[in-house]
């Protein structure tokens, strides 16, 4: 267990000043997620352009440093990706959070990979994995236009 690994500077910084913590004007996809056990909630908004590329992504909600940082980093790097690319990145991220030692997606550049790897400390804290993954599950739900609220599971 290593708190320094969990609470890296970049996590604390994103947690304190989350990017894209707002509601995208003219969004065309959105979904809500919550964690019934702890009461955390997130609402993800996506705006896709005519070419189905994410023009803007944002979120509203409240949660711990891990969940806020995760949503912040996610909404930042998903811009400019299409649905297929975004979903592959989600799979890659979830795989890394659970077991994989590294990220493999060809749709992520080195800088993006480095940022996401800052969340890998969560692996050692099974109870906190859902904090990191809630916004990601919720984003998939937005793409799929699911109306049901996403509930987290480990």
């Amino acid at each position: 267990m290593n708190l320094k690994e969990l609470y890296q500077e970049i996590i604390l910084e994103h947690g304190k000043n989350p990017r894209n913590l707002r509601k995208t004007e003219g969004f065309n996809k959105d979904a809500k997620g919550n964690n019934p056990l702890c009461g955390d909630n997130v609402h993800v908004y996506l705006k896709l352009n005519g070419q189905k590329i994410v023009e803007d992504a944002s979120f509203e909600g409240s949660g711990c440093a891990i969940s806020m940082a995760s949503a912040s980093i996610m909404t930042d790097l998903i811009k400019g990706k299409n649905e297929h690319e975004a979903k592959e990145i989600v799979e890659d991220f979830l795989g890394m959070i659970k077991e994989n030692p590294e990220l493999k997606s060809k749709y992520l550049n080195e800088d993006e990979k480095t940022k996401l790897m800052c969340l890998s400390g969560v692996k050692q804290y099974p109870m906190r994995v859902k904090c990191a993954t809630l916004s990601w599950h919720t984003m998939v739900s937005a793409f799929d236009e699911k109306t049901e609220e996403v509930k987290t599971e480990n």
Partner: peptide, 23 residues
Amino acid sequence: EGVHPHDIATILDEDGVAIRAGH
């Protein structure tokens, strides 16, 4: 102020201090 209760609970746990966080 500035630290979410879940983060508090995780950090306290590292010292063997078991508390509850949530609603």
